[in-house]
Design a protein around this nucleic acid. Structure first.
Lengths: 148, 148
DNA sequence: AATAGGTTCATGCAAATGCATGGAGTTCTG
DNA sequence: CAGAACTCCATGCATTTGCATGAACCTATT
């Protein structure tokens, strides 16, 4: 029996998305690719690598990462101590801290990223066809785009 | 330019799924629904409510919840102190601990669940059509089913 | 331009989390 | 059937996280 009300449909979709995320995440976390950085640290390095100039305001970074502002602040502090990022003062807005990827940080991101991508292929690839993967991408992008 | 290789397709789909999950999760967490239990605690109560007899072995519960075994053990300990679950010894396998929802726990789950469902409807509902929601559900279920 | 209000980030502190480990119980093996 | 290997859970301990708060800076109002 399919869901009837709009609320049920939305709840069912979110439930399915959330559980799928948990299941895949667990397998990705179990794969042996997190020796240099943790998954959350990688997420920060990856986001910075995608940003123009390999740099982002802490506040903007916080919009991409599911962490409280103080937690991200300290995560970045640890990444800086490890030499993967630098923290500069934003000349345009002196409240701001600009987090920039170092060469070493970019190297680690690529190295871990390559192995992580292979891991994703192993765990996500076999589950769906090409068309299904594309449809999933499209629907998730649409869902994300509709958020605040 | 669409992704060409199978690895790229899988990576793009996972990236989209993950980011959508983060964006939606943030909005759901921001809604004023988590006054009685935290989101993770609710996840446990919800999983128990779905289980036959409103009870589950700790080990089985751990398969549904994205937490390490010790962390879940302590989370359940807190829920028991709050009176939302009980912890009994499994007579069939005396290593096991059976976590069972109390009446109070079921009440809280329903109360929070109702508001949470409305919250999901507000944040997920407007983003996609009925057919799209169903497709998303189906693809996520398939993806989840293919995991270990 | 002075003050009030808002934004961005860091720090103190308590709570939550994960890893390593150990104890108790079960199952497998020779 | 003895003991080795494995499974399930709890606890010690260090790390990570979030909340509350405060400092520094920016912006708007008068």
């Amino acid at each position: 029996m399919p869901p009837v009300s709009r609320t049920e449909r939305a709840a069912e979709a979110w439930e399915a998305l959330f559980r799928a995320q948990v299941a895949v995440m667990r397998n990705l976390a179990a794969d042996d690719v997190w020796d240099e950085v943790s998954m959350r640290e990688y997420d920060v390095l990856f986001t910075l690598a995608r940003a123009p100039g390999h740099r982002l305001r802490l506040h903007d970074l916080n919009r991409e990462i599911l962490l409280s502002q103080p937690s991200l602040s300290r995560l970045v502090e640890r990444l800086a101590r490890s030499g993967f990022v630098t923290r500069e003062c934003d000349p345009g807005d002196r409240r701001g801290t600009v987090v920039a990827l170092t060469d070493e940080g970019a190297r680690v991101q690529k190295s871990v990223g390559r192995r992580h991508a292979a891991s994703i292929r192993r765990h996500v690839g076999p589950a769906l066809s090409d068309d299904e993967l594309d449809t999933l991408t499209e629907l998730c992008a649409k869902l994300r785009g509709a958020q605040d």
